[in-house]
Design a protein around this nucleic acid. Structure first.
Lengths: 220, 220
DNA sequence: AGTTCCATGTCGCGG
DNA sequence: CCGCGACGTGGAACT
């Protein structure tokens, strides 16, 4: 990884056009050739400008031209270099995440009864023309139930489930299909909308669900 | 801006939990106190972990604890510091952009016929209680047409336009109002949903539209 | 402060 | 490679 502090101006042309007047900034060039330009503000997350790998870097004395195969171009015009050093960081072992929707989905797929008594899983990520339904189940009466899972349940999630239900209920082999909206927390507006559309909703305690899962695993 | 190259492990607990085993990484601390941790891979854009301002940084010899008012915590445990320097970058003059939705809107407002033969603009950013409609037009028959413009057209855009149409069609002075979804690219799912709701859709070539605009300007 | 919506979103997964 | 949806989405504009 190469770190450069330089007074520079930058021009980007690609998905849009943008330019930065000359100022002191940090330029990061990573091992794979990707480039990011950071100012001292604008938050930790977002670079002022960037080019993701793969790309070609052509460096002359006073300007760097970075191009990628998609036809995007970044030109850095250097006025003055204040610092320029490279470091060998090696491969990063990567990070562990926990608590996202995907994991919640896996836990619920293993424990559909936590959503509703008598529920059994038919298929996870059941495909439709308008996208995959998180879980398709059968209830105790043998009727189809579509489940939409979110970490935080808002109106948009209810909208999404509504679309799936519209679609699924056109299939004579599935009909009637009702919906249950599942999330760790559901906003009051989402609950209201769900009630209005006769869609069920369940708030799931993630920690508790993990506990149930580990209890089950402990039995084996 | 402070740049630290260090062998460190990192733990985050907040919206989710995540951890990084010990490895050499770049730690950036910006003037406002926000922190980002970058590896030598993973692209130019995204840090491995970060904390946005505002936050408190408590630094001891071998560990940094960063907390924010929302109850998120980042702990950096330092094994070895290889480099640690601060730079004064000053305020950044900021950047100029061109080519985003706003500009596409301006071009289309000048050339509504590019969306549909016979279309004429009534008002841009037509206000409703649920937000402004990008363009309100009249078609060749004198009927109202609501236009939603996106750079990339997805289902959410169709959803948004649907809400506007529901609203506008309650107004007896406007009714009937139909909708056209306009974007540089529209996903197949969005097209399917639009068809299903009898909403029109048009894909617009931005470069071509710019060409038309400059041809018109050349006439004056 | 809360809400809504854009973004050069980026990222990851499945077809 | 494309399409789609999640994201610790972030960030800005507006109420």
């Amino acid at each position: 990884m190469r770190l450069v502090i330089a007074s520079c101006s930058v021009d980007y042309k690609g998905r849009l056009q943008a330019s930065l007047p000359t100022a002191k900034r940090l330029i990061i060039v990573k091992a794979d050739g990707c480039v990011a330009i950071h100012a001292d503000t604008r938050g930790a997350y977002k670079p002022l400008m960037w080019m993701n790998a793969p790309n070609r870097v052509v460096e002359t004395n006073e300007s760097w031209v970075i191009s990628n195969p998609k036809g995007e171009h970044l030109q850095i015009t250097i006025a003055e270099i204040l610092f320029d050093t490279s470091f060998d960081l090696g491969e990063d072992p990567g990070l562990q995440k926990d608590g996202v929707e995907a994991h919640l989905q896996i836990l619920l797929a293993d424990n559909p009864e936590e959503i509703e008594e008598g529920l059994s899983l038919t298929r996870r990520e059941f495909p439709t023309d308008i996208g995959p339904v998180d879980m398709l189940c059968r209830d105790g009466d043998g009727n189809a139930v579509a489940i939409e899972i979110k970490r935080r349940g808002g109106i948009d999630g209810v909208e999404q489930l509504t679309r799936y239900l519209d679609y699924l209920n056109r299939d004579p082999k599935l009909r009637p299909v009702r919906g249950i909206f599942v999330a760790q927390e559901i906003t009051p507006q989402a609950k209201t909308l769900a009630k209005d559309r006769e869609i069920g909703f369940v708030e799931i305690d993630y920690e508790e669900l993990q506990g149930i899962e580990s209890n089950i695993l402990r039995l084996f």
